[in-house]
Amino acid sequence: MEFDFIAEKDKFLMLGYGLLAFVAVVGGLLLLLDVVPSWFARRHEAKLVAASASGAPLPRWPKQREGLFALFFLLPTLLLLAVGLVGPAIRTTLLSFMDAGSNDWVGLRNYGWMFSDPAILRVLTNTLVWVILVPLVATSFGLVYAVLVDKVRFEAVAKSLIFLPMAISFVGASIIWKFVYAYRGDDQQQIGLLNQIVVSLGGEPKFFLQESPLNTLLLIMIMVWIQAGFAMVVLSAAIKAIPADIVEAARLDGVTPWQMFWQITMPNIRPALIVVVVTLSIATLKVFDIVRTATNGNYDTSVIANEMYNQAFRYGQNGQGSALAVFLFVLVIPIVIYQIRNLRQQREG
């Protein structure tokens, strides 16, 4: 492969600048945090010395110092989030109350449209099906597999194979599965694996991706295929982290594997389970590429993120697209409340 280093020079230079900026920003921040407090500390010490010399009451450590530290630690994140996500989220919410061209206020009209158009209602139900099934199926599968594969031979290989789809983009995965679901007329050779199986069992080839509601389940299968590996790896790690003495003690008490699973394993991996379910739920709410690549939202398979993109970018309906996005924000509220409860428990525990 001929390769012109000179032509690519600028890119490496830019990459170099990027890395330099990284070192400068992060290093600078840490340095600042190191130098400034020690300067304060010295001054505080000096005050202490002066105070003890004069016999005045000892000054206390200033309380807001902690807050100041926190601010510096959080500053880059907060700034970036404000520009990249908070601003856009507010803008989206405002746009959802405006018309297609974002010129006039229309009140709740876009929301009215959302809940009255049968096609959109279908989109909302589909999203609901997705967000219930994907975390449930992917997590259960990952958990069962993690338990099954624990301590067997070839564990590493078996786990790698399940995790492999994580490395594939959503688009790539959808292409792979579109290939599996492909249809050819019954007078021809099938090129899709699933239809080949159907045909060799004596059935008629089916249009898997065109038959609602089966097609939504088949698309969900793609997401499960990608995410089960994530669930499996996290949960498997959690299972391995259960202290051996607990497991041994339970075994000595003569518990069944079933009891072991529910009474020892499950309570111990609960935090990992929560991470998995929460992460999968949010990823599922935002799923976009799979539906887009596999069916383009046809045959009653569309989901909110896909419809939102169509409305806002393809149809020039900013208001309606934004209303769909706001509905996504609303759907995440239960997860947020659950997370708050968890945090409370953690703080108390």
Binding site: G67, A70, F73, G84, P88, M308, L331, Q339
Partner: peptide, 28 residues
Amino acid sequence: INFRGRDWLYIAIFALQIVPLQMALVPL
């Protein structure tokens, strides 16, 4: 680090996960 409102800040950052990046494209 102990500071007031840190849990709320954490929850807020957590909740930002839901903002679809498609909606952030134009403003950014």
